[in-house]
Simulated scan of single mutants.
Amino acid sequence: MTELSQFDDDERALILNTPGVVLKGAIVSDGSTSPLVFLKEVTAGARAFKQAHRHENAFVKSVALALKERPADEDSELPVTEEAMPEALKLAREVAVLLREQADPEDAAAYTAWLVHLATEVAAAVKSRSGGLFSKKVAINDGERRFIEDLEHALQA
């Protein structure tokens, strides 16, 4: 089993920072500036983090618990620009490479699947109309779908 302690400080920071950045990328991927939408998406993200405290994979569970115990970052900014998406994809690519090189394959796969799950939960938190006023509501709009697909590709790169 992979342990967080086997990584140096920079590597551990990458592992622990990536889920939050993916959360921010997923939040801005819908293009909405509505405070209500933002609140629903943040709530969905928080629920996904809490569920990870009981994750079946011990490595993912240890990451989620380490995030819970980690002090809040006072410099943390809310995702207000689309810059969160490229940053999330960059970190996802880096963490995937790191885990493929240094973690058990099962743990690497579980962690990357958890990142996709997190983004999907946030994206599905609010239904939106994709084709205008008279179109039906969809759980995941085109921007969110592109972000999730790009995230999956980044994690496989």
Rank of each mutant, 00 (worst) to 15 (best):
M1R: 14
R146K: 15
N57F: 01
V116H: 06
R70W: 10
E11Y: 05
Q156F: 09
G31H: 04
D30F: 04
T120Q: 01
A58P: 01
G31P: 11
A103Q: 00
V28W: 07
Q102D: 09
V116D: 07
A84R: 08
L39W: 14
A48E: 15
Q6I: 10
D30M: 05
S76L: 11
D10Q: 14
T81K: 02
E87A: 05
A113M: 06
H53A: 07
V28K: 07
S130K: 08
L118Y: 05
D9V: 14
A109M: 08
L23K: 15
T33F: 14
V28P: 01
A66Q: 12
S32A: 12
E87G: 02
H55M: 07
Q51F: 00
V37G: 04
A26Q: 09
E69R: 14
K40A: 09
P71D: 10
V21L: 08
I27H: 02
Y111D: 00
V126C: 04
G143E: 06
L118V: 02
A125S: 09
F134Q: 05
A72C: 08
E69V: 00
A48P: 15
L14D: 01
Q102G: 05
A139G: 15
T18L: 05
W114Q: 14
S128T: 12
S32F: 06
A110L: 02
L78W: 00
D150Q: 11
T2A: 01
H55A: 05
G45V: 04
N141G: 10
R12S: 13
F7Y: 14
V126R: 06
A125K: 01
